[in-house]
Design a protein around this nucleic acid. Structure first.
Lengths: 243, 243
DNA sequence: CAAATAGTGTCTATGAGACAGTATACG
DNA sequence: CGTATACTGTCTCATAGACACTATTTG
C-alpha cells in the first residue's frame, strides 16, 4: 500500500478489494416466562430454507446501529427496542457469496405490543425458545447465537437488563422467577425481597393482582434518573464470561 | 435487493456498494509504573502528521484478528501479545477517503522485550502515557482510545489482565501498586496480602530482591490451568462501565 | 539505636444465606 | 377450619475494611 502523493482529489476508493459488511441482530424476548429468540427462514440462496438471525447489508449512508434497526424493522416489523453491539464476526469463508464481515447486535423487546411481519426475503418469521432452537442455522449463526446467549446471561446477572423483559407492572415474585430462569437455580424468597427493596429500583403502586392465595402487590421500575436504563442491580457477585 | 433466482454461479459480488474495513489496535503497556499507549505518526494524507492508533485495511484472505496482528507487526514491530476485540466503529464520515468500518482491538504487552520499528507508513512510533496523550488524533481515534481505556480499566478491576503487565517475577507490593494506579486510590497493605494469597494465583519463588529496607520476596503467576490466562481475581466488587 | 521497607494478626461492622414465622386470600 | 400464596423477621457465618503489630534490612 503506497499512496505517496495521494490527496482527496487523487484517492481512488475502488483500488482495494473490499469485503461486504452486514449487520445481524439477535432479538430476545420473554414469552410465558421463557427466553425466546426471533429467527427468519430464508427464501433465497444461499442457505435457502434455513433459519437465520435477521440482518442484511448496510447502506453507505447509515451508521451501523441505524442499519441494525432498519434491517430489523424491514425483516420482522420489530421496532423501538433496546439494542447493543455484540461482536464482529469476520472469518474468511463464513459466507459463500463473498467475504462478509458481520457486525452482530443484541436486542431486547417486551413480547407484548410487537407485531411480526414477514418480508419479501423470508418464508417465515418466528420466536423460538432458546432451549429448543432449530438445527442447522444459516452461515455461522449458531456460533453468533451461542455467544449472544452467553453474553445476555452474564449481563442479566449484573445489570438491570432483565427489567427490559418485564411488562410495565409486575410482582416481585415474578421478577424473582426471571432471575431463577437465568441463573438456573432457586433463590430464597425472603432474601430476594430484602435485596430488591434495598436496591431502591422499584416503585410501589397501589394496584394488586388476584390469584389463588393472597393477592400480590404490583410494582414498576423507577425511571427517575437521566437515561432510560440503569445498570445497578446485581443479584450474585460471581460471574463467568464477561465479553 | 431482489436476487430471485440467484445461485453461486450468477452471484455478482460487485453489484452492491461496499465500505472499506480496517482494524485498529490500541496497545497498552506499563512503563515505570504508568500505563502507556502506542501511537504512530502518519506520513500520508489524510491526517498527515497526526498521531493515530496503528491499524490498516484488512486483506481478503485473513481473519480480523490475523489482520490486527499483521498490521501491528508491520507498523510497530510489536508481536506475541494478548489481544481482544473492543468494538466496531462505523459512523458515516469518520474517514474522508471513503466509508470505512473499523474493527478496534485492545492489546496488552510487557514493555521489556519489545523493539519498536517505524514503517514506511509512519514518521514515528512512540509510547505515550495515558495521562498525557497528544492532542488531535487522526480520524475518531480519540473516541476509540477513550473507550479502550475505560474498557481496560473496568476489565483490570475484575480480571487478572493486570498480570499481563508485570514482569515474570514481581513482589506483592508491586502488584498492589498497579491496582492502586488503576483504581486511583490507596489500598490496605494487609488486606491486599490476605486477598491475593487466598486467591491462590501466585507461586512463591525463593528469590528475593534487596532494597532500602527489608528485602522482598518475588512471586510469579501460576500457569497451571489450561489456558494462558485466567480471569479470576477481582479486587473490588463494584464497577461502572462494562462493555 | 532510628528509619525504612516488608509482612502478619486481629477486631468489627456489614451483609448474604438459611429458615421460621406472620398475613390474607379462597372454599 | 385448611391450604395456598404473599410477605417479614431474625439468626449465623463469612468477609471486607481498619489498623495495630512484628520482622528484617541499612546506616
Amino acid at each position: 500500500m503506497e499512496h505517496q502523493e495521494e490527496t482527496a482529489a487523487t484517492y481512488d476508493a475502488s483500488r482495494y478489494d473490499r469485503p461486504s459488511v452486514t449487520v445481524d441482530v439477535v432479538i430476545f424476548t420473554l414469552i410465558e416466562r421463557e427466553l425466546h429468540v426471533l429467527l427468519v427462514q430464508r427464501r433465497h440462496w444461499p442457505y435457502e430454507g434455513c433459519w437465520a438471525i435477521p440482518g442484511g447489508f448496510i447502506n453507505m449512508d447509515e451508521s451501523l446501529e441505524q442499519a441494525a434497526r432498519r434491517e430489523l424493522e424491514e425483516e420482522t416489523g420489530v421496532r423501538d427496542l433496546y439494542i447493543e453491539q455484540l461482536f464482529t464476526f469476520g472469518d474468511v469463508g463464513r459466507d459463500p457469496r463473498t467475504r462478509v464481515i458481520s457486525v452482530a447486535y443484541i436486542a431486547i423487546v417486551r413480547f407484548d405490543a410487537q407485531k411480526l411481519r414477514v418480508s419479501e426475503e423470508s418464508h417465515d418469521v418466528r420466536w423460538f425458545p432458546v432451549s429448543a432452537m432449530p438445527r442447522n442455522l444459516a452461515f455461522d449463526h449458531e456460533q453468533i447465537l451461542a455467544y449472544a446467549i452467553s453474553r445476555l446471561r452474564s449481563k442479566l446477572e449484573y445489570t438491570t437488563l432483565a427489567f427490559q423483559l418485564l411488562p410495565e407492572l409486575f410482582s416481585i415474585l415474578e421478577l424473582k422467577h426471571i432471575y431463577e430462569q437465568i441463573l438456573g437455580e432457586k433463590l430464597d424468597k425472603g432474601n430476594f425481597y430484602r435485596k430488591i427493596k434495598e436496591a431502591g429500583l422499584l416503585e410501589e403502586t397501589n394496584q394488586m393482582r388476584e390469584g389463588r392465595g393472597r393477592p400480590t402487590r404490583l410494582w414498576r421500575f423507577k425511571r427517575d434518573r437521566a437515561g432510560d436504563k440503569q445498570f445497578v442491580f446485581r443479584w450474585r457477585e460471581d460471574r463467568g464470561d464477561r465479553a
